[in-house]
Design a protein around this nucleic acid. Structure first.
Lengths: 186, 186
DNA sequence: AAATATAATGAACAACTGTTGATTAATCAA
DNA sequence: TTGATTAATCAACAGTTGTTCATTATATTT
């Protein structure tokens, strides 16, 4: 695990912040690599040294931000001795509320699909340990079918909430999710 | 409501079939308008007379196909005197099974997001009449929160099913959806 | 069948893309 | 501090994009 060259960090920082700036000024489809390199004061070709294209840049921006979410979750897991899944939703909604500016600007047009894929993947992994088929609720059902159903529900609700401008407070959202998801777990 | 010029229909037919052909041969991101116009034997500029760009073309292809789904649903609704929502899922899965080739080729990369948005919109509209708050199940819950939760669950499950190559028969899928959705309706 | 309307063509345009190879400059390790 | 490493720059490239305008071809209407 060797140290990363400072120039690389500096370049990526400049690119992403220039990109996020531009995202708040115009539509994603209208942003060009040219624009970004101009704003970041660097050669256009340099961006291609780090990102395949602007879609890759968008994807990596969202992925990097979502890693923060994972840290938030694992931190709140450690606080409570045993993992109480149903109570861990409030921190998630609070996290998105704190980072509203970022996600609301990134979740437009193409942005949605990259967020969706990344976020859903994280949720589906977590659900594999939570969905029980031998319990009373899901007896006779196929776990492979229940998981994408439940996972998509949660991810879709969060997407809706962000896109609508967070019309309800995190507490209310968390309470609803606790009830709605509770109908499929245990 | 005047008749549509035959040239328009001919052009759109040629463009979309050339596009669908190319989609089965290479990745969406590698397909150019040039490619499509070459394959369709027409001037490149002609395509821009009908579509904004290749994303718009992809979107319109999926939207046109999804209209067929709506016809299928409304047809099965008319058969049964009263609309029995819970039994109308089988035709949906059967429809996607019939059109597997189309959807599996279109639901790659960018395709997912256009399918997702269109399909979700249709489902959400339908759910407004089905989700009851005054019933026993959802008492005290907010309808605006329940609907995107339930709708995303269904859409996400269908997406998963198509992308995984339809690993289960429509019957099994419909039965599961009947149970899983039933936990939130009535 | 002729007149009218309009869709498709072809050519040209500036701008952006993604890639290359040679050069310069910054960073790291000894 | 020096030398080796490697990131960033610069210029050039062919190819694509989206747009335009005059021209040609094809439908529709009367």
């Amino acid at each position: 695990m060797s140290k990363v060259d400072r120039r690389i960090l500096k370049t990526r920082e400049a690119v992403t912040s220039a990109f996020i700036e531009l995202m708040s000024e115009k539509k994603f489809e209208d942003i060009t690599i040219q624009n970004i390199s101009d704003r970041a004061n660097m050669n256009r070709g340099t961006i291609y040294l780090h990102y395949v294209d602007k879609y890759d840049l968008l994807d990596k921006c969202i992925a990097a931000q979502l890693e923060e979410l994972l840290e938030v979750c694992s931190a709140s897991d450690q606080e409570q001795g045993s993992i109480e899944l149903m109570d861990s939703f409030l921190p998630v909604f609070q996290y998105f509320e704190r980072n509203y500016l970022f996600y609301s600007t990134m979740l437009v047009n193409q942005g949605t699909s990259y967020f969706h894929e990344r976020f859903l993947h994280v949720i589906l992994q977590g659900l594999h340990e939570e969905v029980k088929i031998d319990g009373a609720i899901n007896k006779g059902l196929n776990k492979d079918i229940v998981i994408p159903f439940v996972g998509s529900a949660f991810v879709g609700l969060v997407e809706w909430w962000i896109k609508e401008g967070m019309p309800f407070p995190p507490q209310l959202m968390a309470e609803h999710v606790k009830i709605l998801l509770g109908r499929h777990l245990l």
